[in-house]
């Protein structure tokens, strides 16, 4: 039996009853119905289950309306004034969690950051971390040549090059999403797939920089 306001050993899965109030859980961080703290180590790096905080499955496809709704309700439940005299979740921790929730919300909304977070999760699962600077052979040389070309060409030609860049960026993102989705469905993701995802995330950064200039 768990008394109200003590933290359960493992946060209940989404839809399971809250140990404090019995309502189905919508967030694995804090019960949105009663405000009880559910996560055991909500601020330890290993306990940072950002999708679980918002009651969402870890995936590239994201229900942003649901994410925003849970974010607003978490913000309300984590207001420090509601936690004076709370033994498990005092005002100071509530404040810290509230800013962590805001950062996680912002991160999840950005597809590139969401992809990087999912890749870190997959790397943990696979016991393999790809080289953080991984890029396909010759990619930097191509980027350098493209930069020189942009520098030397006139406006019409530049626009043409940028059109090509945007199509390349679109193709990279599609492949990134597909590979992440496949890897998340795999019990033991394979090293080459994770390296390719890291490459795509890095390539995206170079292309975004280039097309923004």
């Amino acid at each position: 039996m768990t008394a109200p306001n003590t933290v359960p050993p493992n946060p209940p899965a989404i839809g399971q009853p809250c140990p404090a109030c019995g309502q189905p859980v919508e967030s694995r961080l804090v019960c949105l119905a009663c405000g009880a703290l559910l996560a055991l180590n909500p601020t330890s790096p290993g306990g940072l289950d950002f999708f679980g905080w918002f009651g969402l499955p870890p995936a590239m496809a994201l229900d942003t309306a649901l994410l925003s709704d849970r974010w607003r309700r978490l913000g309300f439940r984590l207001h420090p004034d509601l936690h004076r005299g709370d033994s498990a979740l005092g005002p100071a921790l509530a404040l810290r969690l509230s800013s962590a929730v805001n950062a996680a919300y912002k991160m999840l909304l950005d597809p590139a950051a969401r992809g990087a977070y999912l890749l870190a999760e997959l790397s943990r699962r696979a016991g393999f971390t790809p080289d953080p600077k991984a890029l396909p052979e010759g990619f930097l040389r191509d980027m350098f040549n493209l930069q020189e070309q942009l520098e030397e060409s006139g406006p019409a030609e530049q626009q043409h090059t940028r059109g090509g860049l945007n199509r390349q960026l679109q193709a990279l993102r599609t492949e990134r999403d597909r590979l992440l989705t496949e890897a998340l469905e795999t019990a033991l993701p394979e090293a080459p797939a994770l390296t390719r995802i890291q490459q795509l995330l890095n390539q995206e950064k170079y292309l975004v920089k280039l097309s923004a200039e």
């Binding site: 930097l140 930069q147 950064k205 170079y206 975004v208 920089k209």
Partner: peptide, 13 residues
Amino acid sequence: AVVGAPECGDVMK
């Protein structure tokens, strides 16, 4: 050498 930093997208030859 052509090297780059993914953090900022810089490319250096």
